[in-house]
């Protein structure tokens, strides 16, 4: 479904992606992991068209995405930091995003689920961080797209919202969606992810199921398994 071919990206002198190759098949939840500065966010942003690679190719649904924009209609993205125009209301921002995408949506259901009904007429500037993140989640999941990209989705969520989020992710998976997640919360990965893509120094260092990683590292705890992975690299 998604194919990254020989992807290079430098920011100034700093090499972030160094000839990265990655294939992601359709369906399933993929956790993109790696230490800080390993290129996770850059990789996702390349896919979204926000960062333009120096070299290489990205294929989504059999088409190149570089310098294109229409493909993003089949892609939902949850950004890491939710910051909205402070003077618009929740309802307005939801309507605006709907307006921008010529697609059906199920926003009511999600608004209900996250208890945002009472906040609909509030200005976004007056919302707490957690509530903003909920709005952010509604905006992401209200469309029916084949690919969903989540950048640190658990930020600032209360436990109930977190449970709701997990159930939504599972539901989408069942519908056969492809879901990419970056996170630092290993328990979350352990719980939801089917496969792990581990990035180090701008390259794919490991790609496989969670179990495969645990087995390879001889460690039943994912967190430790990952730590071992990194330690091995620098040993």
């Amino acid at each position: 479904m998604i194919e990254f071919k020989n992807l290079h990206k430098k920011f100034g002198k700093l090499v972030v992606l160094d000839g990265l190759d990655l294939n992601i098949s359709k369906g399933g939840i993929f956790a993109i992991l790696g230490p800080n500065g390993s290129g996770k966010t850059t990789l996702i942003k390349c896919l979204l068209g926000m960062v333009i690679p120096n070299k290489g190719e990205i294929i989504f649904d059999k088409k190149s995405v570089l310098r294109q924009w229409a493909y993003r209609n089949n892609l939902n993205y949850l950004p890491q930091i939710a910051n909205f125009p402070p003077n618009l209301t929740v309802l307005e921002i939801i309507n605006m995003v709907k307006n921008l995408r010529p697609k059906d949506s199920n926003s009511e259901e999600l608004i209900e689920l996250f208890g945002l009904k009472t906040s609909l007429d509030k200005k976004l500037g007056n919302l707490s961080g957690g509530t903003k993140q909920k709005v952010n989640i509604v905006l992401t999941f209200m469309f029916d797209s084949d690919l969903i990209v989540l950048d640190e989705p658990t930020n600032g969520l209360d436990p109930i919202a977190l449970i709701h989020l997990k159930s939504i992710i599972q539901k989408e998976k069942e519908k056969g969606k492809t879901i990419l997640i970056t996170t630092h919360i290993m328990s979350f990965v352990d719980e939801v992810a089917d496969e792990i893509v581990f990035l180090l120094d701008g390259k794919i260092y490991f790609k496989g199921t969670v179990d495969a990683l645990k087995k390879q590292m001889n460690n039943d705890n994912l967190e430790h398994a990952i730590a071992n992975l990194i330690a091995k690299q620098y040993a």
């Binding site: 493909y71 993003r72 950004p79």
Partner: peptide, 9 residues
């Protein structure tokens, strides 16, 4: 950034 992830030029 949110807008950039939407299908808009």
């Amino acid at each position: 950034e949110l807008l950039l992830a939407q299908p808009i030029n």
